[in-house]
């Protein structure tokens, strides 16, 4: 019974981790699908979300408000960045420059966060009703993590249904297949790109706020999370939304169980998983080989 309880809580743990990872990976993969760029700043936008969330909680005392404010602020930052820099590179057709520009944004944001919020980590309190634990098969499990799972599931289903059932979702899928054709059929593709970029940044920010009560808002949080997100996107298939869900769950499981059974090798196992998947399916689980 003990082992079953342990297994259950570890599985739930992994799902809660997957939820946070999903928030960052889904934006990364959607942006790649539609713009064919890897947004190196995505981890920094996640981090910015955590800091903006911290300040919102500090100013208003409301974690719930932080869940609204941070995505709006970071989404706006993303939209401005896309409009000022990326859209111009697009007009010039300058593919190689993206890497430098998004990497540059990551560096600049990291420094700006250090200037604004200082070098020390900022804790974010878990909201009252999510504090404490529930007992599952006699094993304690944090309520907050159950909340993360619920939110992750809701977000994944909502985004998926949005992509499948709305006209905007249809256009996003179409642009990821042939942007020039979508444009020639009367849709302003640049607008689609800006919106998707902003949406991806907002989702990352939401992930940052959600992670903050567990890990605090700290300067290194972008670096660790961006690597996980890259691995997820590669495993799931670059540009595949459903792939980002599956990838998030797989990576979270490897991390949680790897950390328990092989504490020194968790990271190596994650890369091993990626390697195996790439050997079997070079385009990722749900991706296309290009």
């Amino acid at each position: 019974m003990d082992f079953v309880g342990f297994l259950l809580t570890q599985c739930l743990n992994a799902f809660s981790q997957a939820a946070v990872l999903f928030f960052i990976a889904c934006g990364l993969t959607l942006i790649f699908g539609i713009m064919r760029i890897i947004n190196f700043a995505h981890g920094s936008l996640f981090m910015l979300g955590a800091y903006v969330g911290y300040s919102t909680v500090a100013a208003t005392g409301s974690f719930w408000l932080a869940l609204i404010v941070a995505p709006i602020v970071v989404g706006a930052v993303g939209i401005a960045f896309e409009k000022v820099f990326l859209s111009r590179l697009y007009a010039r057709g300058d593919g190689g420059a993206y890497l430098m520009v998004t990497f540059g944004l990551a560096v600049i944001m990291g420094e700006m966060i250090r200037v604004i919020w200082g070098p020390h980590p900022h804790g974010v309190a878990t909201p009252d009703i999510l504090r404490g634990v529930v007992f599952l098969l006699d094993q304690p499990f944090p309520k907050y993590r159950l909340f993360l799972i619920a939110l992750g599931v809701i977000a994944a289903i909502s985004v998926w249904q949005f992509l499948e059932r709305t006209r905007a979702g249809l256009l996003i899928r179409a642009v990821s297949q042939n942007a020039e054709m979508v444009q020639a059929l009367g849709t302003d593709v640049q607008l689609v790109r800006t919106c998707v970029f902003g949406f991806g940044c907002a989702m990352a920010a939401l992930g940052g706020v959600l992670a903050a009560p567990m890990v605090t808002a700290f300067l290194g949080m972008s670096a660790s999370v961006i690597i996980d997100a890259f691995v997820i996107v590669i495993i799931g298939g670059m540009g595949s939304f459903l792939g980002s869900i599956i990838g998030s769950v797989l990576v979270a499981y490897v991390q949680v169980f790897g950390a328990y059974y092989f504490p020194n090798m968790a990271l190596a196992i994650m890369y091993l998983l990626m390697l195996v998947i790439l050997v079997v399916r070079p385009g990722g689980l749900l991706g296309k080989e290009e």
């Binding site: 249809l170 899928r173 179409a174 297949q177 042939n178 020039e180 054709m181 444009q183 020639a184 059929l185 009367g186 849709t187 302003d188 593709v189």
Partner: peptide, 28 residues
């Protein structure tokens, strides 16, 4: 004009090679 505005002005395009969206259904 950018091509989406030209399309909206009433020019429709059937391109060389057809350029059907491969992962969308016929209706989509």
């Amino acid at each position: 004009w950018p091509s989406h505005k030209i399309a909206r002005a009433g020019v429709a395009y059937v391109p060389e090679g057809r350029m059907i969206f491969p992962d969308l259904t016929v209706v989509e």
